[in-house]
Design a protein around this nucleic acid. Structure first.
Lengths: 195, 195
DNA sequence: CAGCTGACAGATTTCAATATCTGTCAGCTG
DNA sequence: CAGCTGACAGATATTGAAATCTGTCAGCTG
């Protein structure tokens, strides 16, 4: 029954929870299931996470943080700001589309989780727009971009591309022409930032 | 029982259906309810609409057409294209926000209906982007805008502003700062179109 | 005889009884 | 004694039987 008899740690519980969510979906994944997967009683899980909601929130955060980290590398790069911006937006869209298309059920599961955890999502979005702000500011510094306020402009760029990263539009990402529509949108946005 | 004893017409059925949807919501509105509201048997309703889905679709179309018509006036105007574009986008956002904020339940009802009727919604969107294309083309003609292809650019503008007209973002329209975020986005988009 | 009715079959929804889950905690165990 | 267990109360979800709804159509009605 005990898959591994190592110490019960928050990390192991999170891994087990992801697995249970993957198998059962967001509606049927229970704390009892997670405990069973770990070969412990559900009381033990509550020692590490006060509530089921807190556990789900932690899983959501982990998942979002993985995306943030992948993109942070691009934002921190040292190429031309305009190219960096295009790369960053493409990477975000590609990552989302790959997740949504590759395992639709898992993506739906995480869409439910993000819907439940507005605070964590807000932090994630704040993180992403901070990355964008860094790129926009770099563009202003090199003279490639001209904007009144980099922070505001970065948020506008993020909002302009909502359709290509917000889960509520996932259905449209696989449609023929989506890539072209994305390219046209990025062109429009980049032109809007240029000096 | 009979509210009016005029002939039973598709139009009267649609009005009654809107009323039933307003009262009962999308989940509980039945064809029997609509018939009862009209003082006829539900068989009579099926004489005018083949299925419940067709009835709901017709209601959805009516609702969307009202928005289209209001905007068509702006798109067909004769002011500066840039100002017309700003007016049009503001009118769309204002209309949506007013509907969502003014009667959230009714808006939720129509969100369900639009979710059910992808084809009608696609036509509505095609209509709106055609209006936008007209404005963009006018801008190209006056030399205010420079774009490779007005149709593509118009779609990009529509997609860029998705966050401020797509029902799945309705929750965010009433948040403080939404108006400023909208203004920043429109500025970005307009700059992207300019010559 | 055009248009409406109401009974009907099959599909869907409701509702209440039953089962399961969440979160707590006193006590066990190593 | 730190960490885990398992029984428990209240909350939530499942289930299946009963009620309602959808869509059809033979026949009524004006």
């Amino acid at each position: 029954m005990a898959p591994t008899s190592e110490t019960l740690t928050a990390e192991r519980i999170l891994e087990a929870t992801e697995e249970v969510l993957r198998r059962h979906g967001p509606a049927k994944a229970t704390v009892v299931d997670v405990a069973r997967a770990l070969g412990v009683s559900h009381g033990s899980v509550y020692r590490h996470f006060r509530t089921k909601a807190a556990l789900r929130e932690a899983v959501t955060k982990r998942w979002l943080d993985r995306t943030s980290e992948a993109l942070a590398g691009i934002a921190a790069g040292d190429g031309e700001p305009e190219a960096r911006l295009r790369d960053w937006l493409s990477a975000l869209f590609d990552a989302k589309r790959r997740k949504a298309g590759g395992d639709p059920e898992l993506f739906a599961t995480y869409s439910v989780l993000t819907g439940e955890n507005g605070t964590v999502v807000a932090e994630h979005i704040a993180d992403l727009t901070a990355q964008l702000t860094k790129i926009v500011r770099a563009g202003v510094d090199t003279g490639a971009f001209t904007v009144a306020d980099p922070r505001t402009a970065a948020r506008a760029v993020f909002h302009a591309t909502d359709r290509f990263h917000d889960p509520c539009h996932a259905r449209e990402w696989e449609r023929p022409g989506a890539q072209e529509e994305f390219a046209a949108l990025v062109d429009l946005v980049v032109r809007g930032l240029r000096s």
